[in-house]
Design a binder for these strands. Sequence first.
DNA 1: GATGAATGAGGGTTCATTCAT
DNA 2: TATGAATGAACCCTCATTCAT
Lengths: 206, 206, 206, 206
Amino acid sequence: MKLTRISEIRRRELRRAAYEVLQTEGMGGATVEKVALKAGTSKGIVHHYFKTKKQLFEHAMRHSNSGLRDGVIKLMRQARTPDERLWAIIEGNFMTDFFTPAICNAWLALCAEVPREPQLARIQRVVHARMRSNLMTALSELLPPEQREAVALAITSLIDGLWLRMGLHPGEISAQTALTQMTDYLAHRIPRIDWNEHLRRAGAAA
Amino acid sequence: MKLTRISEIRRRELRRAAYEVLQTEGMGGATVEKVALKAGTSKGIVHHYFKTKKQLFEHAMRHSNSGLRDGVIKLMRQARTPDERLWAIIEGNFMTDFFTPAICNAWLALCAEVPREPQLARIQRVVHARMRSNLMTALSELLPPEQREAVALAITSLIDGLWLRMGLHPGEISAQTALTQMTDYLAHRIPRIDWNEHLRRAGAAA
Amino acid sequence: MKLTRISEIRRRELRRAAYEVLQTEGMGGATVEKVALKAGTSKGIVHHYFKTKKQLFEHAMRHSNSGLRDGVIKLMRQARTPDERLWAIIEGNFMTDFFTPAICNAWLALCAEVPREPQLARIQRVVHARMRSNLMTALSELLPPEQREAVALAITSLIDGLWLRMGLHPGEISAQTALTQMTDYLAHRIPRIDWNEHLRRAGAAA
Amino acid sequence: MKLTRISEIRRRELRRAAYEVLQTEGMGGATVEKVALKAGTSKGIVHHYFKTKKQLFEHAMRHSNSGLRDGVIKLMRQARTPDERLWAIIEGNFMTDFFTPAICNAWLALCAEVPREPQLARIQRVVHARMRSNLMTALSELLPPEQREAVALAITSLIDGLWLRMGLHPGEISAQTALTQMTDYLAHRIPRIDWNEHLRRAGAAA
DNA sequence: GATGAATGAGGGTTCATTCAT
DNA sequence: TATGAATGAACCCTCATTCAT
């Protein structure tokens, strides 16, 4: 029990370190040694906790997603109406803690590996499915069935596109502009809701 | 003169080979040897034409973008009205020759390197600037000034998001669904144009 | 006293485990961790009882030899005549419990280390000396002095050669064929004894 | 052609170096670096010519066997009668160039890996088959059919056993004593031939 | 221009061994 | 006694790059 505790802490530290290295170095430059260095341990200990480099970065990807997921969950808890729930999903994807150049770069680096790493693909699929499920649930009370699918796709695509831009052109975008974009889209698609009100509250909270 | 000609052909072959290797292997797995093999030459010749591996993949990125650019240019030549021009830009980004899983993966792999490769960043910036300029020009006759910026951002973000999806979840999307998405967005944003007509024509052409 | 007893049991378990790992993994693949795993303990405990990996496998070699030695001793106790004693030595080397592919492989793996491991060489020398002494004693009443040396050498070489074959080509040999070989040799060398009778009894016992 | 030539020379050097390292260091201590050092090249070049360490030592084993085989072939060419052919096989296995402690150790080291290395096993099987075939041919005119198998087994086992002894107890044996042993055995098994005459000539030749 | 030989740095991984608990 | 955390050395292998032919 005690041992498991220590081991769990180390694993957390290491996957966090791996994630941070990923942000600055990309996948190609993320060596086990750098991760060990950032975690303040030896190279050997990394392999003590993660059999392989791939496993380490799989856990880094889980770590990455869990941060975002927790943010969304927290916001959704406070949501009372369908539009609040939808907005919570969107706002959660642009929290200022996560919507940063470094994190978007790490996300991009992991995405680029997905096509050749079945495990990463699996994680990606799960994350994607959860996102879609959340969206569809929220949309179910806002739109007729035949429109939901398309809107869910548009929302996720927009979010991904904005994340990509934050990664590639950090200076040209901010959480504020990103949320404004989302608001604009929603305003046209689901006009009976006052999405600007949501945006205003989000800005006030930040 | 003759030699230069031959040399130019070799360079073209090599950057093409590099691009193809990138599609299947990603940046991490793209070695000089694999590129040489795909081009049917020796490893030494690659370094004869490209001083360094980085340079090779910079040219591969240029090659990648030039293909897309040529497609857009060709479509724009046939455009007569502002909305045709705007549609040409969009349609050009989802031509079935380019909007494929392999190519989207290569694009993704290159994007992921941008943050740490100033040269790639430079190319990316140029490409991005051209895209934006084209969009703004086309929008200048379709929207009042204060809306153009936001719409241009939305369009590029949507396109990028849809490309990303093609890279990550190839089975879930097609050029047709992508163009439908773009049509939906434009229909809300610039309602006085019959974008479905554009979509129909694109479908017929394909 | 009690502790020593427990500690002795642990050491026995560990050297036995080491020996078993050796059978399947060879010297190169025999890691301390695998030994610990097979013994059902932790890696640390191995080093608690055996200061070093070399020591562990020295004891494994002793374990290996002691098994064979005990078998020979048991058979020799029942021997009444010189030829029975000689036969006991030979039969003991091909008891079906020991003359197995796995055990022959472990023996081979240890032999291969002898040239570079003085401790293993020492053990090997002792074992060899005992074998030779036993043989010479038995032969002393069967052959004139000037022949004993050569016959002892032939017997040991034949035995080793047959063990080697069991290790390398397990399917091509059995205890029965090995004993027949030995019988053939003895029949020519010491013709006044009916070695086939010994062979028959050994077969009946098995 | 020229290149192949150079490459072939390097490969020969390297497998020879590998074989020599094997003699002094055993399989466990035979590192790629030591082989490179002994060959006077860099570590990288070893992998340029042999994809993997295993492959390198497979070729080393082939090298080892080819030396012995060539010796036997040379002797067999001069053989005119069945008994000369049989003796050629035996004498070839105890030529003073090969029947040395170092070479017997290398042989032992390779044998010990056979059970876990399919490729080595394959080579071993081929070598063994050739040996057996040679023996059976030579014996076909010396013994009735029902005895040949057993005698062939005895001869190979004796040879192996004597090689093992040379590896483990170099001081206790020599080519001369080994050949005497073989002579003794043959004298009993195939008494109508004067094997001592063969032995004498071998001694005179050496 | 073209080839592949050669190098050397660096990466992932394994493993014996030591130590703190 | 027993565990497994931690280290560091060493090994195999990859690869970009340089060079000689």
